[in-house]
């Protein structure tokens, strides 16, 4: 998995021994503090509800920086989706050696068409994001595509520039 936005670039490799739990390492280039560091990360599926046409998930996440225990984060994020609609949220509290901050986001989306298994799937989304180190919320459009084991998500906002996410499932 790789992320890139105005605050950082990162590459995250994780392994899931079960669908409830994953562990991994994220190498991060922090553009705000101009530092490079890594996190040992873990994500835990707190709750999932499956129905015929929907799935809802709530996850807890935590990470410990390779710089020491006082460099860490905790967070919660969740989503609810059908084949047509998507909604998600996330809150992440980060403590570093130099600053503490909070990241929040809300996201909603709609699939303009319902692809079959194996097709290219497309989502039109709206994301609203707030980093406590910056002023105000940024709301911007996001396009999400996936096909097979590859997922690509790209958003653009005039202030925060590109917000992208790429994931490959091995």
């Amino acid at each position: 998995m790789a992320f890139s936005n105005t605050m950082y670039d990162s590459v995250y490799y994780h392994y899931s021994p079960s669908y409830r739990f994953s562990v991994g390492i994220e190498a991060l280039s922090d553009k705000y503090t101009d530092q490079q560091y890594a996190y040992w990360r873990s994500t835990f599926l707190l709750n999932r509800k499956n129905t015929q046409h929907s799935q809802r998930n709530i996850y807890l996440q935590a990470g410990i920086g390779t710089q020491g225990l006082d460099h860490h984060f905790v967070g919660v994020h969740g989503d609810w989706e059908t084949r047509r609609w998507f909604s998600g949220f996330g809150v992440k509290q980060v403590k570093t050696n130099t600053t503490d901050y909070t990241e929040k986001f809300l996201q909603v989306g709609v699939a303009p068409y319902l692809g079959q298994y194996g097709d290219l799937h497309t989502w039109l989304m709206l994301k609203s994001k707030k980093d406590s180190r910056l002023e105000g919320w940024s709301t911007y459009p996001v396009l999400k595509f996936f096909k097979g084991n590859l997922l690509l998500e790209v958003g653009y906002d005039r202030e925060i520039q590109w917000d992208s996410h790429i994931m490959y499932r091995f």
């Binding site: 669908y19 709750n47 999932r48 509800k49 499956n50 129905t51 046409h53 929907s54 799935q55 809802r56 969740g78 609810w80 609609w85 909604s87 998600g88 949220f89 809300l106 909603v108 709206l126 609203s128 707030k130 919320w137 709301t139």
Partner: peptide, 24 residues
């Protein structure tokens, strides 16, 4: 904008058709 998005997501989470099946 944020309050509307929050409201939409809250409604989907609370009232979404998700009553029947935990992952068990």
């Amino acid at each position: 904008m944020q309050s509307k998005l929050t409201l939409v997501i809250f409604i989907l989470f609370v009232f979404g058709k998700s009553a029947s099946a935990e992952t068990e």
